[in-house]
Simulated assay, not measured.
Amino acid sequence: MYKRILVPTDGSDITAHAVETALTLAKALGATVATVSVKEPFPYSAISEMQPVPPQEFYDAQERIAASRVKAVVDAAQAAGLACEAYTVEALHPWEAILDQAKQLGCDLIVMASHGRRGVAAMLLGSETNRVLTHSHLPVLVVK
């Protein structure tokens, strides 16, 4: 059935539930697991030469945050007796990075959390999960 599962993480509690689901499924199917956390690019401003945070400090902080997120998934996988590859990538649009990572790794399933926003909140805030669902050629399991 599924041989390689990608589980994106943003470090939220709802994502932790998606991680549990992905690991349980991977164990049952004998699949491998990979995780990815998407870092924000530096917010360059054409208006001002002054930046509140120096670029390198911003990049270092983003990497620390992303690395801690994927480490939590790797640790959960190890506790479940599974190996897990971890990746951090920088992208303006997380949904694109998730789909690119799935393609590069040869994944055949993406397991993601849904934050459950509806109505105006969903329209204003958007949904990375919804965008992955819309643009993916792979199956996507959405965990609520």
Rank of each mutant, 00 (worst) to 15 (best):
A80M: 10
H93Q: 12
R118W: 00
A113R: 03
Q101W: 00
L92V: 15
A121I: 14
Q78E: 09
A83P: 01
L109D: 03
A80R: 14
A79T: 11
I65E: 09
A113N: 09
R118K: 14
H115K: 15
H93F: 06
A121C: 07
L105P: 03
H115I: 14
S114A: 15
A80E: 10
G81H: 09
E85H: 03
E96A: 13
A72Q: 10
A79R: 12
D100K: 13
E85F: 03
T88F: 01
M123D: 01
T88V: 14
K71M: 10
G116H: 06
A102P: 00
G106A: 11
M112F: 04
A113Y: 01
R118Y: 01
Q101S: 09
A83L: 05
T88Q: 05
R118C: 10
Q78M: 08
A80L: 02
A83C: 02
T88Y: 02
A76K: 11
I65A: 11
A122T: 08
A76E: 03
P94G: 09
A80D: 04
V111R: 06
A77F: 01
Q101V: 12
V111G: 02
Q78L: 11
D108M: 14
L92E: 11
H115L: 13
A122D: 09
I65M: 10
E85G: 14
M112H: 03
A72P: 00
S114E: 06
